[in-house]
Write a protein that binds this DNA or RNA. Structure first.
Length: 488
RNA sequence: CGGGGUAUAGCGCAGUCCGGUUAGCGCACCUGCUUUGGGAGCAGGGGGCCGUAGGUUCGAAUCCUACUACCCCGACCA
């Protein structure tokens, strides 16, 4: 076979890399840790972006764009923030190149050294809050609800396509509010937007919760997260929304006059998701035959394969179906390539995760049917041509639901509740996945568990029921269980 | 950044240990014919500064040094 994928059971991370490569999503570039997102992979990101952008606008946000470069001094203004990002910043020190006198090519012109170095943004809080200082004077200027679609750079030690790259695409929302309550409400609202998007569009079930202090965003008072389970049982943080308190307002002196003419610092949030979501999508649904995409994000929702190759009658039927599907907003591709045989195309579109494939051949047409193959279950059925567009429309919905249910069932099977550390270690070893256990709320036990098992607290679930228990390590009392897992 | 591995055509590999004329194979690609309901067959053909830079040698894919990238395992992280 031309394009074999390493089975998940054999080597999960190789399987992931094979899919990224063979489905044509991305490839490594000439730049360390940076990938080229290829057209098919970018089309998925565009679909993610389009849906999220609509949701942001529906919740009152506007898009804007801030500079890629941040003056170095800005990073020093918020202590926790700089500590979190300092170790992974790309720094611009010069602005000119010159021919090397020895003729060996270009070198940095030493006379073009910058007065103050520029940092390539690892996130934009600092440059944005420095700007907000000028935009906010009165309570009438609030709330300020801005989102930015951008690239950021974090110089990571080890990278993987989509999951962690030195440069990545994301959106970052940065909002300013008059009150603490309103800011917390905003952070929670965007947390909900992410969770709903993950579940209803990506068909990826997530656990909503807040981060423990040690896992919090650098500079945040509270970080809300959505955590998804990948097919190897590991957790992936898929989106975060932060309540930043007045930390950045104080660091950048962003004050407003309230309606009593008193000066106050504003309250802030920031929230983001990245191209990591494409990686999450892959690791949630795909199988050993390739990518599996939820219909709502698939660049091609239906592919029509003439069997064995296009002829006038087949194309007439295919075009008829296409017109009807397109009028329902369904994206369709007719593969008219007559150099490749059907079997090849079948495998190819399965690799690409196209949700529905229609096989149209004379043998079926004589009986008034076409073959409908669904990617998620691999089922094939002969479906009458009459009103096939309704059948397909419904099937897309069914596939979307099925993918979500399948992922949800998988998560249920791989979720455990344990009370002792012995049990915790055993479950982690044998079964992996998510583990709910009691925790005394201290960083010490959290750190100890991480040291001993590599598992971390993914979140303190929002819907955690009150349940008295004792911490597995310290034996101290606990009011509810928190979510542990090994994570990406 | 630490430990281990790899780098030869677009992809996957052999050749490297033990240096020797023109560097092979499979897939992919091009041409032609025959095919065509799950990755077609035959015939012919194109494609390589052997990761990069130095060094040793009459001669380097092969030996030595450095660098870079990728993979696996850690530490860090969305």
């Amino acid at each position: 076979m031309a394009k074999e994928i390493t089975p998940r059971s054999e080597n999960y991370s190789q399987w992931y890399l094979d899919i990224v490569k063979k489905a044509g999503l991305a490839e490594n570039s000439a730049v360390r840790g940076s990938m080229v997102i290829k057209p098919y992979g970018y089309a998925i990101w565009e679909n993610i972006k389009e849906d999220l952008d609509r949701r942001f606008k529906e919740t009152g946000h506007q898009n804007a764009y801030f500079p890629l470069f941040i003056p170095k001094s800005f990073l020093s203004k918020e202590a926790d923030h700089v500590e979190g990002f300092a170790k992974e910043c790309a720094v611009v020190t010069h602005h000119r190149l010159m021919n090397n006198p020895d003729g060996s090519g270009v070198v940095v012109d030493p006379s073009a050294k910058l007065e103050e170095e520029l940092i390539v943004r690892p996130t934009s809080e600092t440059i944005i809050w420095n700007t907000y200082k000028n935009w906010i004077k009165s309570y009438r200027d609030l709330p300020l609800l801005i989102n930015q679609w951008a690239n950021v750079v974090r110089w990571e030690m080890r990278t993987r396509p989509f999951l962690r790259t030195a440069e990545f695409l994301w959106q970052e929302g940065h909002t300013a509010h008059a009150t603490k309550e309103e800011a917390i409400q905003e952070a929670k609202q965007m947390h909900d937007v992410y969770a709903d998007f993950a579940e209803s569009v990506m068909a990826m079930p997530v656990i909503k919760g807040s981060k423990s202090e040690s896992e919090r965003f650098a500079g945040a008072l509270d970080t809300f997260t959505i955590e998804a389970m990948m097919q190897d049982g590991k957790a992936l943080q898929a989106g975060t929304s932060h309540f930043l308190g007045q930390n950045f307002a104080k660091a950048f002196e962003v004050k407003f006059l309230n309606n009593e003419n008193k000066e106050e610092f504003v309250w802030a949030t920031s929230w983001g998701v990245s191209t990591r979501l494409v990686g999450a999508l892959i690791m949630t649904h795909s199988d050993d035959d390739g990518l599996v995409l939820p219909p709502k994000l698939a660049p091609i929702q239906v592919v029509i394969v003439p069997i064995p190759k296009p002829n006038e009658k087949i194309l007439e039927v295919a075009n008829g179906i296409t017109t009807k599907l397109k009028s329902k907003g369904i994206s369709v591709k007719i593969d008219i390539d007559d150099k490749k045989r059907p079997g090849f195309k079948f495998a190819e579109y399965e690799m690409m995760g196209v949700p529905i494939r229609l096989g149209i051949g004379m043998r079926d047409l004589d009986k008034g049917v076409v073959e409908v193959a669904r990617r998620d279950t691999k089922e094939k059925n002969a479906i009458p041509l009459a009103n096939i567009e309704d059948y397909i429309e419904n099937l897309l919905v069914e596939i979307q639901d099925n993918l979500f249910q399948k992922a949800l069932n998988f998560r249920k099977e791989r979720t455990s509740y344990v009370d002792t550390f012995e049990e915790f270690k055993n479950v982690l070893e044998d079964k992996g996945g998510f583990i709910y256990a009691h925790w005394d709320g201290t960083a010490e036990t959290e750190e100890k568990i991480k040291e001993l098992t590599k598992a971390t607290i993914r979140c303190i679930p929002l819907d955690a029921k009150d349940e008295k228990g004792v911490d597995m390590i310290s034996g101290k009392p606990s009011k509810n269980r928190v979510l542990f897992a090994k994570a990406y």
